[in-house]
Amino acid sequence: MTVRVWDLAHGRSGDKGDICNIGLIARSDEAYERLCRQVTSQRLRDHFGALIKGDVDRYELPNIKALNFVCKGALDGGGTLSLRSDHLGKVMYTWLLRMELDDE
């Protein structure tokens, strides 16, 4: 059975200039550990393809079972310049929720 990030976590995303940050909050301790193992910066970068032009850094907030991804060059120049309908990156997290995880 295909497991997506959405099965293990919920999230939120927003903007700071041309940076989009995507927060994931795991639904359980086991889910958090699995996300930590599988949702690496590189994996996320590959999943988003050309939507993210720069580097991705990952940060951990273990006590609330959250991961925070800071994605540079992710908003077509930033909220004030972007031609995208989602110029503030409000739904960027949903693209991550769709990502399929590997079997474990």
Binding site: H10, R12, K16, G23, L24, I25, D57, Y59, K65
Partner: peptide, 11 residues
């Protein structure tokens, strides 16, 4: 939790 991770860089 969702608000906490909103528009945060290095926590």
């Amino acid at each position: 939790s969702e608000q906490l991770v909103y528009e945060v860089l290095d926590p």
